[in-house]
Design a protein around this nucleic acid. Structure first.
Lengths: 344, 344
DNA sequence: CTGTTAGCGCATTCAT
DNA sequence: ATGAATGCGCTAACAG
């Protein structure tokens, strides 16, 4: 009972050959209806289950895909992964999840060990783009293992990506603040060597300029996506001679830190200062003072990334081409920025 | 360049045999220092990488373990998984994550497809225990695939588990409320066919009884772990003739719903009514009115579950034995229940 | 110390 | 329509 039954076992039982069993099971080649039926039936009787490992060795496909993210315990990435799984499971694929914790070496290690595990593809959100990590990517490309970036991408020839229009998200968030009457809008930025943060910065800047406000570079400070960092940086803003009357943060976590700091200073939100975050993490909705944020439709992003992977893995014959899908973000207005609500 | 190099390639280059190469690479048997060095060096030159699939087929080990959880986009489960990965990655294992979304059929399907993928073990938190799903579990046991439960377990002979002492966590949470002077403490319960929720209920009940308060079954209502459900159920409490002055919730999400509903009724927290949750989800700390909750040390739980798996997978020879590890939860007191703070 | 042989489980030529 | 033979890449048993 402990030994698994193979196609040989069922072949022996039926006095036929393993090849025939294989054919019957895969209802591939021409085979007599009678034997197919017989094989299928006894296969069920003997609790036969295909050994995917053997199949993988034979076919070179493991039906595993690797997903690399900075971290898993953030709602955004967890939701993207959920989208990927929803799309891939029905097709028989499994998902192997790796975290980089924003460490460059782990990113490389993860790629290597996924390659080692013979994954059929890699979907990833890069951690940082300062150090050149192209060797790992080239390895994937050389081996024809489809690589798809989502959210945090890098521009590499032949590599597809699914992102959101961060520029637009930031532009609209900033425009929303301007529409609410705020004049001096600061920006809590983040590592701008990453395109997403760079684009959020640019969208913010453009909205400021397009609407006739003064763009002041000193109102842009780069920090890390942590609550405590958000507090620290916000303190700098609040201590300015001409302090800002609104903050557009590129992260919900720093937005939260900003709110804490503002309250600690005895200022009111959104009357004195307004705050807008980015990502629509669940807590932004849960807070008593709910936080306006930009939704990135992470589940959809995951599903689409998975679809792109499926296309690439199936179109092996055709000429390679890269595909860049850009989703439209959605501003979710909540209490932290709704100055005019009562007036309407 | 696209073809991967195998041990045969490097054997040919060196005019030795593949077996020798294999030995050198695994620095196993006795082998001359010279050839080993030579093999290692040319292996590096030729960019050799072991094909784990072949190894898996040969050894019967895939170095993949399956992790099954109700959902991934909850901080608790994401953190447990993180703990599992931290422990398993250094040992060369990969983690395949499956979600059940609390659906029984998905639980069964996931086990089957993990089995199909030849995983070396399954770590899981069961979704519900109403329907008997023992066939799937028996399959695992028959095939000697280690199965370890974490958090949400089922009592099955030979299966180890890592849980927290939910009874104690609930007892202390309730005791804390009693110590703060609350007299009429309600309990927002959850599906008690799951041991964790049953034990939280029992801990609550025992604390009430031990401290000379009246245990009133009508103050216990079972609901689902969602914010909206928490609100609905809390409304029932608030509409009672003798309404409770405190609520111990078996979930942070229902606790949050309770808080919303209480505020909507114009009551003050914790002065009028106090609220305590369970799980220490991040938002409980983030809220302006931070929520007292019970921490379950999820990362530690994941690490230990992984360790138990490693023990089982390595001690194949010895007699099987089950191991039950129970972690001690920790009450984190925050604003939602600290009535006496100002007095101290 | 190293070569030979064989097999893990399967799918796929080439025969028949 | 089916059988025989082969190889995917690796390790282990048995010789030498």
């Amino acid at each position: 009972m402990t030994k698994k039954t193979t196609i040989y076992d069922i072949a022996k039982r039926l006095n036929i050959t393993a090849a025939t069993v294989s054919r019957a099971l895969n209802n591939n080649a021409k085979i007599s209806v009678a034997t197919r039926k017989l094989v299928l039936q006894t296969a069920k009787e003997m609790n036969y289950e295909q050994n995917k490992l053997a199949l993988a060795l034979k076919s070179g496909k493991s039906y595993n895909v690797g997903v690399i993210v900075p971290r898993i315990d953030s709602n955004f990435f967890a939701s993207v992964i959920r989208g990927i799984e929803e799309e891939l499971y029905p097709k028989g694929y499994h998902v192997i999840i790796c975290q980089t914790h924003d460490q460059q070496n782990l990113e490389i290690e993860n790629i290597n060990s996924l390659l080692n595990a013979q994954v059929d593809g890699v979907l990833m959100s890069i951690s940082n783009s300062e150090i050149e990590n192209n060797d790992s990517f080239n390895k994937l490309i050389k081996k024809h293992v489809p690589l798809i970036f989502f959210d945090r991408k890098k521009s590499i020839s032949g590599v597809s990506s699914v992102t959101i229009d961060d520029f637009k998200g930031a532009y609209e968030a900033t425009k929303h603040l301007i529409d609410q009457g705020y004049k001096r809008i600061a920006h809590l930025s983040n590592d701008r060597s990453l395109q997403i943060f760079k684009n959020r910065y640019l969208g913010y800047k453009q909205a400021i300029i397009d609407n006739g406000l003064e763009f002041d570079e000193s109102l842009v400070i780069e920090t890390m996506s942590k609550v405590a960092e958000g507090r620290k940086t916000t303190k700098i803003f609040l201590d300015m001679d001409r302090r800002p009357d609104a903050i557009f943060s590129s992260s919900d976590f720093t937005a939260l830190g900003a709110i804490e700091e503002i309250k600690a200073h005895g200022l009111k939100i959104p009357e004195d200062i307004s705050v807008v975050g980015f990502s629509n993490e669940p807590f932004t909705k849960f807070m008593e003072l709910s936080i306006t944020s930009v939704d990135q439709s992470p589940i959809e992003m995951g599903r689409i990334a998975a679809q792109v992977f499926l296309e690439e893995v199936n179109n092996s014959k055709k000429v390679k081409s890269e595909k860049h899908i850009v989703l439209t973000p959605q501003l979710i207005v909540r209490k932290s920025s709704q100055r005019l609500t009562q007036l309407v």
